[in-house]
Design a protein around this nucleic acid. Structure first.
Length: 807
DNA sequence: TAAGCAACCTAC
DNA sequence: TAAGGTAGGTTGCTTA
C-alpha cells in the first residue's frame, strides 16, 4: 500500500475507496446538519426547485428525478411494432422528482388528422410536423428536464429502445445526444450478457431502468406482464390491448378510440413511476449503494461478489491489506470442498401436537466472528494435504516455529484448519461482520425512534436490509468456486463444518435433556424442528424459549439460537418441504398458513393446483377430518369435469431462456409455445428469462406433452380444442395431494377412481364463449375494468357509456 | 421397467 | 467479457 495516495473522506476529487464510516449509516447525515432552504423557484415546466444550504454552502438540492417513457407506433397485420419499419406517431412521458409534488405528464405526437380532429381535455398534447421533429422534441425534453433515471416497462423492444432505434434510422446518435457526459468507450461490452440481464441501452450519466426486469428480481410473480405487475404491486386493473387493436384505433375515425389510446399510454408512463415508488426501488438502490460503497447502477447490474469486495476493500485499505488477484486458472486449481451442511431426513408425518421451530440467527457470519475466521488469520492445515498447505488459491508459507510460538492462541476448526485467536490478530472479515451485525441492530433501533417519519423509516429499513445482505453473502464470497475473485474453500469448509457441528451438538443436547420431552424431527443447515408430543401450544412456547436460551448459552458469542415459531399442526413431507399453521406469539389466536417448498409456493404448477392443495391442507388442519377433505376433492373434480372451472386456473407459466436449450430431445413446453409465437410475430419473441404462459390441450393419444402445449389466447380462439382434463387431474392435481395425504393414510387417487361420476362429461367446452369472457375479465382485464367510472376521453367522473356528457 | 438426464424452482 | 454457494424434489422424456 506504500505510495497509495492518501484520500481524506471529504476530498471531493479523491479516488480509491473511502473508509467505512459506520456511524453515518446509523444516523442519516442530513439530520446532523441544519438544512437551510433557499428561495423556491420554478423551472420552465413549473416544477419547484429549491437550493439547500448544507455545511454553510448553498447547493441545489437534488432529489433523484425520473422520466418514464412509452411509445406508440402503429403496425401492420397485428404484428408487434418493428422499429425497422413502423414509424413512431406518439410519445408519452411522465416526469417526477422523488419526494416532490405531482408528476408531470405529456403527450407528443406527429401531426395527423386523428390528432387534429379534436382536443383531448386533461391531456397536454404537443404536436409536431414529422417523426423526426417528434424525436428531436424528446431529446430537448431530456436535456431540459435532465432526469437521473430513464424508465420504461420494456426498454429493449419498446419505450426508450424503440425510440433510440428510430432515432438511429435518422442518423441521430441518440444515446450520445441525451447523455450527460461524453460516452465511455469501454472495450468489454457484452451485448448478450447485457440483453439477458439488464439492458442494452446505455446513456452516459443517466440510469436506464428496464422496469420489467427490475420487477422480476423484486417480486415473486407467476408472470411479469405489465398488467400483472400493476395488479399485484398497485392493486390496479389495467387493460391490455393487442397491437392490432391499437393500430386499428389509431387509423379509425373514432375520436373515442384515439382518446383511449392516448390516455392508455399516458397512464402506463404514470404507472411505471408508481410501481417504482410503491416498491421503493430507488430508495433501496440508493441506500444499498451507500451501504455497499458502490455506485447506484452497480447495485442493480452487478452481483454479490462485487459488493462484498467493495465493502471488504474499504475495510482492508486502512489496515494496509491488499486483496490478492489470482488468475482464473489459480482459482480453478483450488482443492475440492469437503464439507456439507446438515440436512436431516425429516420424519415425514402429520404432527398434531405443537412443533417448535428454532434457528440460529445469522449462523455463518456468527461462526466467522466467533472463530475469528478470515483470510488474514488463517494458519492453514494442522497436517499438510498432498504434501502442500494450500489455502484457497495460494500456498501458505508458514515460517517454522510459528505454530510453536502461537501454541495457545489458535482455534482449530472442525475440518482441521487453524485460525489465530482474536487476541493475536482480529480478522478483517470477523471485524467487518461484527460491525455489520452490530450496526444493523443500531439501525433497527433508530428506526423505532423515527417511526412517525415515513421517509426516514424507509431509508433506515433499506439500510438495515443492505447490511443484512452483505453479512449473508460474505460466506458465499469465500466459497465462490467457479467465478470467485478470491475464494478460499478451506475457510468455506471450516464455516460449513462448524455450522454442522453446532447444529449436531444442539440436537444432541436437546435429546439429552429429558425434562423437555423434545424430539428434533427435522433440521436444515441452521434450523431445528422440535416435536413436543402431548404438550399444549402454551407449553411449547415456553419450552421453545427455554431451549433457545439454553443452547445459546452453550455456544460462543455471538452465536444465538432464536425462537422462530410454533407449527400446530404441521406436515413434514420431505427435505425442504413442509407446511403448517404458524403461531409466532404465544397470544396469537389465528394461525397463519405457511408452506415451504411444496406446490402451493411454487410457480411451475398451475393456480388450480395451488388452490386445491392449500384448501385441502387447511381443511385437514382445521378439522382433521379426512371425510371433509374427500368431500372437497369431489366437489373440485366435479366442477372441473363439468367444465365449470375458469381456464386461467389451468395456465402454466415458466421461464424461458431462448438460445440456451440443447438440440437433443424436445424443448420444454414453454419454449415450444414461444417459438411458435415468434414465427407468427417475430417481434413477439420472449425476452431472456420471461415467463411464457401455456395450457395443455387434448391431443392424439401418445403425443408428447410439448406438442399439446398451446398459447392460452390461441387456445381460446380455437373452437375445436379443449383442455386435457385427464392430464390436469391425474398428473397435476392429484400427485401433490397424494404425497401429503399418503402420510395420513389416505389414497387420493383411489378417491378419484371411486368418485361417482354421474355421467361422463366431456371436458370439451360446450361454449367457449364462457371461458373467453372469464379469461378476458380476470386475466387480461378488458377495458370494462379500466377506470370504470372515469370518462375515457376527459377523465371526468360523469360517465355515460364510454364517455361523458361533455364530449 | 429402471436409471439417467435436462429443466425448473425452491430452501437455506 | 460477468457470473455467491449447495441440496433437494418433481416432471417428462430417452436410453439401457
Amino acid at each position: 500500500m506504500l505510495g497509495f495516495p492518501q484520500v481524506s473522506r471529504r476530498s471531493a476529487d479523491g479516488f480509491g475507496p473511502r473508509k467505512v464510516d459506520w456511524s453515518l449509516l446509523v444516523i442519516d447525515f442530513h439530520l446532523g446538519h441544519k438544512l437551510i432552504r433557499g428561495p423556491t423557484q420554478r423551472n420552465k415546466y413549473g416544477l419547484k426547485t429549491s437550493p439547500m444550504k448544507l455545511d454553510g454552502v448553498f447547493r441545489e438540492k437534488r432529489d433523484m428525478s425520473i422520466l418514464s417513457l412509452e411509445v406508440f407506433a402503429p403496425s401492420n397485420a397485428g404484428q408487434t411494432p418493428n422499429a425497422q419499419e413502423n414509424e413512431l406517431v406518439a410519445l408519452f412521458y411522465t416526469f417526477q422528482i422523488l419526494e416532490s409534488e405531482a408528476p408531470m405528464c405529456r403527450v407528443a405526437c406527429v401531426d395527423s388528422t386523428q390528432m387534429k380532429r379534436r382536443s383531448f381535455p386533461s391531456l397536454t398534447l404537443d404536436i409536431f410536423p414529422s417523426e423526426l421533429d417528434l424525436i428531436n422534441s424528446i431529446v430537448d425534453v431530456v436535456v431540459d428536464l435532465d432526469p437521473d433515471i430513464l424508465v420504461g416497462w420494456d426498454v429493449q423492444n419498446s419505450s426508450w429502445g424503440y425510440l433510440a432505434a428510430r432515432a438511429h434510422s435518422f442518423g441521430i446518435e441518440f444515446e450520445e445526444t441525451i447523455a450527460r457526459a461524453p460516452p465511455r468507450y469501454s472495450s468489454g461490452n457484452n451485448f448478450q450478457w447485457e440483453s439477458r440481464h439488464t439492458t442494452t441501452l446505455k446513456i452516459a450519466g443517466r440510469h436506464v431502468f428496464n422496469l420489467w426486469r427490475i420487477m422480476r428480481s423484486e417480486q415473486t410473480l407467476n408472470i411479469y406482464t405489465f398488467e400483472n405487475v400493476a395488479f399485484h404491486v398497485l392493486g390496479q386493473r389495467v387493460p391490455k390491448y393487442s397491437p392490432l387493436t391499437m393500430s386499428n384505433w389509431y387509423r379509425s375515425t373514432s375520436p373515442v378510440h384515439v382518446a383511449i389510446l392516448l390516455r392508455y399510454h399516458t397512464k402506463r408512463t404514470m404507472l411505471n413511476i408508481e410501481i417504482l415508488n410503491q416498491t421503493e426501488v430507488v430508495t433501496k438502490t440508493a441506500e444499498f449503494a451507500r451501504v455497499f460503497g458502490v455506485d447506484f447502477y452497480s447495485v442493480i447490474s452487478r452481483g454479490s461478489q462485487f459488493k462484498v469486495e467493495s465493502f471488504m476493500f474499504r475495510m482492508a485499505k486502512p489496515e494496509s491489506y491488499v486483496l490478492i488477484s489470482p488468475s482464473k486458472s489459480d482459482v480453478g486449481k483450488q482443492n475440492a470442498a469437503e464439507c456439507l451442511p446438515l440436512i436431516m431426513e425429516p420424519q415425514s408425518s402429520f404432527y398434531t401436537s405443537p412443533l417448535v421451530v428454532l434457528d440460529f440467527q445469522s449462523l455463518y457470519p456468527s461462526l466467522m466472528i466467533a472463530q475469528n475466521m478470515c483470510y488474514s488469520t488463517c494458519l492453514g492445515r494442522v497436517i499438510d494435504f498432498q504434501g502442500r498447505n494450500k489455502f484457497g488459491v495460494v500456498d501458505l508459507d508458514r515460517p517454522p516455529k510459528r505454530l510453536e510460538k502461537l501454541h495457545d492462541h489458535i482455534n482449530v476448526a472442525p475440518n482441521g484448519i487453524m485460525f489465530v485467536k482474536p487476541t493475536v490478530r482480529k480478522g478483517l472479515l470477523s471485524r467487518m461482520l461484527t460491525e455489520l451485525l452490530d450496526t444493523r441492530v443500531m439501525v433497527k433501533q433508530a428506526m423505532k425512534g423515527y417511526r412517525h417519519d415515513k421517509a426516514l423509516t424507509r431509508v433506515l429499513n433499506a439500510r438495515q436490509l443492505g447490511l443484512k445482505y452483505i453479512a449473508n453473502v460474505t460466506y458465499g464470497y469465500t466459497s465462490a468456486s467457479f467465478s470467485g475473485r478470491m475464494p478460499a474453500v478451506e475457510m468455506a469448509d471450516s464455516i460449513v463444518q462448524s455450522g454442522r457441528e453446532t447444529l449436531e451438538k444442539a440436537i444432541a443436547f436437546i435429546h439429552s435433556t429429558k425434562k423437555w420431552g423434545a424430539e428434533v424431527v427435522y433440521g436444515d443447515t441452521d434450523s431445528m424442528f422440535i416435536y413436543l408430543q402431548g404438550k399444549s401450544r402454551e407449553q411449547a412456547f415456553k419450552i421453545g424459549y427455554e431451549i433457545a436460551d439454553a443452547v445459546t448459552a452453550l455456544n460462543p458469542a455471538p452465536v444465538k439460537l432464536k425462537f422462530e415459531k410454533v407449527y400446530h399442526p404441521c406436515v413434514l413431507i420431505a427435505k425442504k418441504r413442509y407446511v403448517g399453521f404458524k403461531y409466532e406469539n404465544i397470544d396469537d389466536r389465528e394461525p397463519i398458513f405457511e408452506a415451504k417448498g411444496i406446490e402451493t409456493v411454487r410457480r411451475d404448477g398451475i393456480p388450480a393446483q395451488q388452490k386445491m392443495t392449500e384448501n385441502c391442507l387447511k381443511i385437514l388442519f382445521r378439522t382433521q377430518n379426512l371425510t371433509e377433505v374427500k368431500q372437497y376433492c369431489y366437489e373440485t373434480w366435479t366442477k372441473l369435469l363439468e367444465n365449470r372451472a375458469p381456464v386461467q386456473d389451468f395456465i402454466f407459466a415458466k421461464e424461458v431462456k431462448m438460445g440456451t436449450y440443447s438440440d437433443k430431445g424436445p424443448p420444454p413446453p414453454g419454449v415450444a409455445v414461444a417459438a411458435k409465437r415468434t414465427i407468427v410475430d417475430p417481434g413477439d419473441e420472449p425476452q431472456y428469462g420471461e415467463r411464457v404462459p401455456y395450457v395443455i390441450a387434448r391431443g392424439e393419444p401418445g403425443t408428447k406433452l410439448v406438442d399439446r402445449a398451446v398459447d392460452p389466447l390461441e387456445y381460446l380462439q380455437d373452437p375445436h380444442s379443449s383442455l386435457d382434463g385427464f392430464y390436469y387431474i391425474s398428473r397435476v392435481l392429484i400427485p401433490p395431494l397424494e404425497r401429503i395425504f399418503n402420510l395420513v393414510g389416505a389414497d387420493v387417487r383411489q378417491w378419484y377412481n371411486e368418485m361417482p361420476k354421474a355421467r361422463h362429461i366431456d371436458l370439451k367446452s360446450p361454449s367457449k364463449a364462457g371461458d373467453a369472457q372469464v379469461i378476458e375479465l380476470d386475466q387480461y382485464n378488458i377495458s370494462e375494468h379500466f377506470d370504470r367510472s372515469e370518462c375515457l376521453i376527459c377523465g371526468n367522473f360523469t360517465l355515460q357509456g364510454d364517455r361523458c356528457y361533455s364530449m
